[in-house]
Every structure is written in C-alpha cells, then in structure tokens.
Design a protein around this nucleic acid. Sequence first.
RNA 1: GCACCGGUGGCGAAGUGGCUAACGCGCUGGUCUGCAAAACCAGUAUUCGCGGGUUCAAUUCCCGCCCGGUGCUCCA
Length: 492
Amino acid sequence: MTIRLFNTLSGQVEELSPSDGKAFRMYACGPTVYDYGHIGNFRTFLQVDVLRRFLRLNGLETRHVMNVTDVDDKIIRNAAAAGLPIGEYTKKYEKAFFEDLDALSVEHPEIVARATEHIPSMVKLIQRLASEDIAYRTDDGSWYFRIAKFPQYGKLSKKDFTGITDGARVDVDEYDKDSARDFALWKAPKPGEYHWETELGPGRPGWHIECSAMAMNYLGDAFDLHAGGEDLMFPHHENEIAQSESASHCTFSRHWFHIRFLLVEGRKMSKSEGNFYTLRDLLLKGYKASAIRLLLISVPYRQQLNFTFEGLNAETGAVERLRSFRERIRAAATVPGLNASLAAEAARAKEGFHAALANDLNTAEARAAIFELVRAGNAAAAAGTLGAENVPEILAVLADFDAVFAVLDDHDPEWTRFALDWAEKEGRLDQASPEIRAQLALTDEQIQALVDERTQAKRTRNFARADQIRNDLASKGILIEDSKDGVRWKRK
RNA sequence: GCACCGGUGGCGAAGUGGCUAACGCGCUGGUCUGCAAAACCAGUAUUCGCGGGUUCAAUUCCCGCCCGGUGCUCCA
C-alpha cells in the first residue's frame, strides 16, 4: 500500500518511500531535557510514533534518529541555579523523558543522539561552511551563518526575505552580525560559562547546528523525512536546511512532517493559563496512560486537538470497549465455520483502517473502521452467530490496529504506580488525587478479603452489608463486577 | 499589524459539490442483575460559526465578517 503524507516543503500530499530502497531514514526533533515533558510535547512524539509504527506495519524498515538537546541557554541557567554540572542536571530529565515515552508506549528510535556527544561533528560542519565563507566569525568569537549565501532561505516556511532591510527591525549593533537575519552557529562563552575548547575557539553550539550535524552523521547528506512540532518550522528547520544544504549542495530532507499544536480546554496551553499538564500530572490525577495515548493520537496530526478532561474520560471508556471486545472474541462461544457477513465486516474494517492511515495518517477514520467491526462482532457474539473461523480473522485485524495504536494490552496500573512512587520520592504526593492514594493504600490481599466478605454476605442475602462494602470500595476507586464466572474487581 | 490554519450534535471529532453527515464518549430505552456495576443491543444533528455569491445542487467552491489557534521572538 502506498503511504501518503502531507509535505510542508512542497505543500502537497506525497507518497513516502525509502529513497535508498532499503530503510526509511527519518529524523525527528527530540526534547530539550530541562524539565518534565508536557502533553503538547507528547502529542508530537506520539504522532511520529504513529508514523513509524505504520511504516513498519507496512513492512518498511525504519532508521529513525532522534536528538536529545542536552545543552542550551535554559539548561545552562537552570543547572547553574541548581548548583549542578549540566550533565547531571540533564540526566534526570532525559531519564524521565524516556520513562514517559514508555508509559505512552512510544517506540524508541533506532538512534538517540545527544548534542553534547557530537560537538566534533558540529565543529566540522561549521568549518565546512567557513571554508566557503558561509560561516563567519565575529569579534567576540561567535560564528554565524551568512543567510545572503543561501538564496532559497525561506522555502520551507514560505517566507520571503528579499524585502527585509537589515537593521530595520533589529538592533544590529547589539549582535555584531553582518545581517540581522544571520543566526548563530557557535556561541562564544560569557565569562565563567560552560563551554568546549575547539578548533573554532571556545564556545558551545547554536541551537540549530546539532540537528544538521547529527542528522547528516547518521542518515547521510540526504534522507527521507524530518519531523517536529509546527513551531519548529521557522526558524529551526529553515536554519537546518540552510546549514545542511549549503554544506552538502544537495537536498537535506525530502519530506517535512509537522505536527500541529494542541489546545487545552479550548485555550492555548500555558503555565499562566493554569492549563499546563505534564504526563505525570495526569497520571497522578488518576488518568490512564492508554487513554492519554489514544486521545493524543486520535485527532489527525494536521488538526488542532482540543485536549479536555471530558475527552480523556471518553477515551478511557473507548479503551475499555476495545479491550473487552478482544477478550470477548477470544473467549466467546462460537458456532462451527465462518459467518460470511461478519467476515465481510472484518475485511472492510481492515481495508478501511489501512486506507485511512495511508491517506495522510487519518487516525480518526482508521479507528472508526475498527469500532464498526467492534459493533458487528459484538452483535454476532450476542446473537450466537460468531463463527469459529471468524475469530482468528478478527484478532488479526485487532493486531494490525494495535500495531499502530498500541492500547489493547493493559499496562496502566504499572504506570499509575510508577507515577505515585515517583511523586513520593520527589515529595509531590500531595499532587496525587485522594482516590488514587486511597486505592493504592489498599493491598490486593486487603481488597480480596473485603470482596470475599461481600460475596459471603450476598450468599446469606445480607444485601445491606454487601452494598456497604461495595460502596466503600467504590469510594476508594475500586470497582466490583459480578459476572457469571465469579466476582472481579479492578482499580479504576 | 501581516501571513497561514481551523470553527460540524451535549463533548471530542471524520468527511464530501448531490447516496440515510462516520466514529468515540454522553444521554434515553432495553437485555442481564437481589439492586447495581460491567458487558451487549437500540435510539439519539432536517443539519455543518454568521452574512452574501457561484451552481440544477454547497457543510463542501468564492467574498466579507466574527471567534479560536499558530508563525513573524524561546517553545512540541
């Protein structure tokens, strides 16, 4: 199946394929590890995950590089404030970042590249630019990129800089640059500031150079796709193109994949609005990692997603429905043979699922196809017309679905537990919802004892006592479900 | 201010120049249950921000307005 995706560079939906005929080579801008990741960050990483998972489901091998920016102004400032070496400061947040990715079932890229471990590549790239007078050194020892040498500057963000006059809007004197638009490749250190001693002189890399250097290092001068949040389009990606293509004289990335920002409760997410959430904030409020994943991927990447708690609750229910459907199909009584109309539904769901994702990653439509199969399958099971031969077919469709959506296996309690343990260690337990804390204060054995007592009470028709236990547990976030094959309970 | 994107039921949303406007949640009714919960089934927008226009036909194309977002500066 041909996979088509919108390309920011061309403004068209285009077919994706590995240009070397082997592996699909992609670079995705990763985190700057100075704080815990928020849901906006994770929407981007999740959409990239959807892309790579779908490519792999289609039999393509991926060579996916993600950078970790472990040196920049904020890191230097925060590390200094914390009295830590920057390496120690960033290590904590990098670890947290990958834990969060795991909680959200985001596959790790094949290659994770830290900026601080690639300084020589960056220096070499800047030297390459300097040899053609594209990079120049200013009196303070910083190096800048000469935009005048790259006439296509603006081709990604569709900006026209030809009419911009130097000095009109920017105080040129302050920067000591040849042109106001020229951007830093290498920053000379301020007194006492963290720096590397290199052939360029002492300093640290500018923001953009790391991505150019590392992408070219691992993927070559030209590769298939570059991804990131929409805000990175300009100036970050534009500058990457300028640096890379000036040095290599060939097209850097063929395809540019940009993920839209989300809104929270209809507003821009920001700390001042009070609607800023990290993944850990949500886990501590009792929301499940799988529901967060499903919500963040269910709105196609080019649409603004409005993240709401009501939506999160809705997706919690949706995950439950999908999981119980798979359980039901696995366990339901079947009749011999094949139910032909159900088989047609399964085939249609599979086709619809793949076609939707292949069409510019339309995740909303893809999951809709699966839910239609859920309804048809449940109806057949309820009517006693589920054929034995339908079962493996339906499970195969669900396997395809889960190869991309990754929400069917239940790891949620582990991650809630994880968040609580973390909160306890960090002294943030007060941020956890009372219900979650009450729930986790009870051991499985204690809960089981109460459940058994209730079953006993029911047997003697002491319904008052039975209901009292049920209500008491419910207030602590533990739900009791009576079924034909016994009593089950779960942590909400 | 300039540029770009979006505004579809109670909520999140898909989609299309003309078939009954997907799907999830919610809500209502039903099956089940000691009662619930869970699970399942069924029903649930004469209508797609507002005002014009093009067309035999517009939610879908064009113009204007209002609202939200993004970029122009650090940001996923």
